[in-house]
Design a protein around this nucleic acid. Sequence first.
RNA 1: GCUGGCGUAGCUCAGCCGGUAGAGCAGCUGAUUUGUAAUCAGCAGGCCGGAGGUUCAAAUCCUCUCGCCAGCUCCA
Length: 576
Amino acid sequence: MDIKAMRHSAAHIMAEAIKELHPNAQFAFGPETQNGFYYDVEIPGGSLTNEDLPKIEKIMKKIIKSKTPFHHRDVPRDEALELFKDQKYKVKTLNSLLKDEQSVSVYTQNGFVDLCRGPHVENTGNIGAFAMDKIAGAYWLGNAENEPLQRIYGICFATKEELKEYKKLLEEAKKRDHRVTGKKLDLFSFHDEGAGFVFWHPRGLTLFNLMVDFIREGYRKLGAQEIRTPEILSEELWHRSGHYENFKDDMYFTEADERRYAIKPMNCPGSILIYKEKLYSYRDLPLRLMEMGHVHRFELSGVLHGLFRVRAFTQDDGHIYCMPEQIEEEIKRFVESVFYTYSIFGFDDVSVFIATRPDQSIGSDEEWENATVALKNALEKNGVEYGIKEGEGAFYGPKIEFNVKDCLKRNWQLGTIQVDFSMPRRFDLEYVGSDSARHAPVLLHRAILGSLERFIGIYLEHVAGALPAWLAPVQAVVITIAEGQNEYARKLSEKLVGKGLRVETDFSPERMNKKIRNAQLQKIPYMIILGEKEVMDKNLSVRLRTGENINGITVEEFVDSVKEIIKNRSDTLWPE
RNA sequence: GCUGGCGUAGCUCAGCCGGUAGAGCAGCUGAUUUGUAAUCAGCAGGCCGGAGGUUCAAAUCCUCUCGCCAGCUCCA
């Protein structure tokens, strides 16, 4: 059965139910979604509330039970205008989107008529499992200047089992919320004094820095050299780069000595200034620079969301200056690096897209065409399958996007590599070719994780806070059973720290059980339990976070095993 | 930014058709010295996000403001 048709049909049934409750309800659009459907409605002089959802659901069930057929017919536009004369949004649609159509498609069930292209299921009985979900605000045509509407969401699946599974995933996602994990594991916080700005706590910053180390290592392997550029640069620079006219509303500005400055929302202009420091030969290219660039963007208050959407973040931002014929090779190397990096984090389901020219953009048609073809060629020659995202490129050039699926099957866009012919021209970038003439290099913008902050949020949810040994801010905690072992524990801990491990001790006057519980809640990978026995035998009893016990090993055996796990960036805690 | 909801102890939350605040956990103190996810008891802790207003009286009602949450829109 076509799940899309089913969900879309469910939207019609919901509309019929709403019309039963509110005969004068005005319906806008009601499409299917990834997990169900919604319908945008306006209740003249009133509104729907959460209490209405069960009522709607009840009526929908009745309609489904009736197994009423969906009738399809094509009617002339004039007739449709008459038919929908009481539905102002349908009339608007007929007079805009469908204004050139001779006849339009109409579906009817139970006397409820809707302007709709279809397709639909045969009858209302063909709806699998559904549930009303929530009510949210929306606007006609998604524009806040237009009429406010209410978007009524439902979820719908072919079977009850799938619906149940989906609800379980939602619950699981709620449990894994990185904002909660961040608080519980004492990683980061947010404060009213700076909405959208992350405060990294000691443990969170340890994680952050370990991530940075790993990314740096990857970029080094790609032959990139790290730079750092200022966060405040003159406003004029941003006019030149084109960022000002495209994003001035989303930028922070400041002033000093009567000169206007912008807090950088992007790293490329800074990198470009370094490139312009000297004249490069074609032999120097590709020149690969990278920067852990801290950028500020004045995001709308309503979009802020934990680490996912912040107003200041760190990009693993790379800029490659190369000749056009080098693009393919650079993309090839980058793609390999991206897949490798994601696999280390346990993201094995990666999809690739090419995003093409958006409405608001700079550069000539020819440049866009060339750049887009270059991206396609690079992917095709490397056997990478990809989809197309029409009009979703950057304003200066097309891009390849890398999406991963996490363990809850949610999609996240992470990495990107973008071809840019525009910026080099705007900044008069040059290199001397083998023909002794000066040419403009191509600029490739690339990022593997995109935003470190956002990636950490995604990853925390992916692993539910249980960080692998190589990333755990505290790798092991030494837990004593009685005070008598504290001195020995202190020495042991110091020894382990000396070996390069991140180890803490728990000397709190609590029982061992409580200390273990606390360590478990902190998701610390290794708990070293010290009692009289271990002190006597000079060996260790290790409890893994998974609950498994490794008893009677020497300190050396422990260190070697953990170091091997860390070196391999393994997601298991103990060697096989 | 827009629509709707929310803001009470360090944390999670109760109290809210008005009569100046409560629980659990965490913290502190004392007792307990304990073998793989919470020992017991006591103590302390809050200008109820901020500013105005209504009222004899405001955590509770109203206005504004800041922040958070769910969406919309946006994302170089």
